[in-house]
Amino acid sequence: MAMQRTILEKAEPVAEGAVSLLLRGADGPLAPWEPGAHIDLALPNWLTRQYSLCGDPADLDTYRVAVRHDRLSRGGSEYIHLFLDEGHTLDVSVPRNNFPLLPASEYLFLAGGIGITPIVPMLTAAVEAGASATLVYMGGSLATMPFVDELRAAYGSRVRIHATERHGRPDFAAKAAALGPRTLVYCCGPAPMLEAAEAAFPAQQLHIEHFRPAAKKFAPNEPFDVHCARSQRTVRVGAEDSMLDALNHAGFRIPSGCREGVCGSCEIALVEGEPEHRDDIGAPPGRMYCCVSRALSSGLTVDL
């Protein structure tokens, strides 16, 4: 995975428990990106975490992300909030986009809490393209919602704020009933919000990004073989092993980030065999995410 060197130029609070990081390219312009993209951020405590880009895609001198301090942090957000100082050098990946903004004449954007981060540049792009665009932004209180003032100042009545402790949750069923047939709905936020959106809006118009994998059930793991076509080697994946770990232990250096099937950093090319896709991204034909996915056939052939 290609990495880029950046310097943390500015870290500033953008809401209670949320901080914005402005990362400046240390070696010149950074790789381009489009709304919905995210980066892997390699932290000095050896953890790698994924964060949606929420700055201006036209500004290739800097990337901006926002991070909420998660009380159940696995070490990433806690390190950023408590120990990461301005001036630190940080490696970041080339942006990947599993949540692209498709062309449309009308958009409804739904954001919950820190789920606003991929939505900010989407709203900007939609408005600049001349589309009809509305943002419904939800959070427990105004104090905990990043970028509220920025969004209100830039987009006025296009932005509808719901502080749920005061106003309750918006009626998704009513919004779905009023939805135009060509309106695309983009949604990012906590799992209960995503589930409510999936229940209310037509699947063909709804686009969702998960921060955590959705609960799914699969048959018990079975061992299988992975034949690596280019190197002519075969790697056994035990029932208790992930395909990613087995390949890494065999000497194949496959990048990984979330290890939960939501970031896409461990994507590999599939040559032959029937995979069992367990990710939340939706692997394109001929690809798979080996951190969680397995084989339905007795083996798989991959391009390694």
Rank of each mutant, 00 (worst) to 15 (best):
C263D: 06
R287V: 07
H210T: 13
Q232K: 12
C266S: 05
G286D: 01
C188E: 00
L244S: 06
G286F: 13
I268L: 14
S293E: 03
Q232Y: 03
A191V: 15
A219N: 08
D280W: 10
A203E: 09
A250M: 06
A219I: 11
G282K: 07
C263M: 06
V262Q: 01
V226N: 13
F224V: 02
E260R: 08
C266E: 06
G189C: 07
M243D: 01
N221K: 05
D225K: 14
P275R: 14
S231K: 04
A246W: 02
V292I: 11
A239W: 08
C263E: 02
E195S: 08
G257E: 08
C228G: 07
R253N: 14
G286A: 13
L194D: 02
E272R: 12
E274M: 03
C263T: 00
C266T: 00
I281R: 01
K216W: 00
V271E: 08
P213T: 15
L247S: 00
R236E: 10
H207M: 10
L247G: 01
P284W: 14
R212I: 15
L206E: 09
H227D: 03
R212D: 12
R259M: 07
E260S: 13
G273C: 04
S265F: 12
N221Y: 03
C266W: 03
P285F: 14
F218K: 06
E198L: 06
D225S: 10
G286H: 06
R287Q: 04
C290R: 10
A199W: 02
V271I: 12
F252T: 00
F252N: 00
I281Q: 00
L244A: 06
F252L: 08
K216Y: 03
L194R: 04
H210S: 13
T234E: 01
A197G: 04
G251Q: 00
A219T: 11
D225L: 09
G286I: 04
F218C: 06
K216C: 02
L247F: 00
E260F: 07
V271S: 05
A196R: 15
Q204F: 09
A229Q: 06
S293N: 02
I254A: 11
G189P: 14
L270W: 05
P202V: 13
C258N: 05
A250V: 06
C258M: 10
V262W: 04
A269T: 03
H277I: 09
C290G: 02
K216M: 03
L247K: 01
A215P: 04
E209Y: 01
Y186R: 03
S231L: 12
S256D: 09
